[in-house]
Amino acid sequence: MLAGIRAGMARQADRRRGAPPPAKPIPVIPARATAPGIDVVDLFHRQVLEAKATLEVVASRSDVPAAVARYLTARNAPAQIRLAPDRRIADLPWANAPLLETATGRSHGMDATSVTPAVAAVAETGTLVLQSSAETPTTLHFLPDHHVVVIGRDQIVGTYEQALARIVRDADGGLPRTINFVTGPSRSGDIGKVLLMGAHGPKHLHVILVDEAL
């Protein structure tokens, strides 16, 4: 098979008649998230809403449990939540919301709601960047009906490239097994081109933006 591909490479060389093969282009990064004076937090907020997710800003980490409880009550969702075993989530003062029943670990499909952290949030398109690890199982990102993502203000970056740089900075030994870029709740337009939320993944995506570092 490789021989066939290499025969193709030889044909290409003949056709080029001594000219060098095409070089890699310089990437084009959209100015919308990099131009001077852009407020990436504001841009992220607008783009998240456009992607049909919801977002609430809270002042500090200690406000998160109450915000989660409010969110669930407003949607008539059960009070049981599955937390990512990541200290940024698991160590939040859940006792502040005594009605919530918390459990940690991966999901097996029985959880209505998950609460997870993110590696970064990208303003360009309102995209959450999530990764797999021992503390952040991927099943939490896809199986529950409600996915609540808690991010700190300092996690918001302008572009995908800046988010990748964060992953690389935090990673030892290369990329994690899985990186998920998530932009809004699951949807499909496969039935009559009508766009509907909640095809297979979460029907609702809710971002809680903490106005301090997590």
């Binding site: 992607a51 075993p85 670990g105 991966r106 797999s132 690890s133 021992a134 199982p137 991927t138 099943t139 290369g174 990329l175 994690p176 097994r177 899985t178 990186i179 998920n180 870029f181 998530v182 932009t183 809004g184 709740p185 699951s186 949807r187 993944g201």
Partner: peptide
């Protein structure tokens, strides 16, 4: 909505 990068099987400590 979802762009997923997958590299190899689950890592030793991964839960899923």
């Amino acid at each position: 909505v979802y762009v997923t990068f997958s590299a190899g099987p689950r890592r030793a400590a991964d839960l899923d």
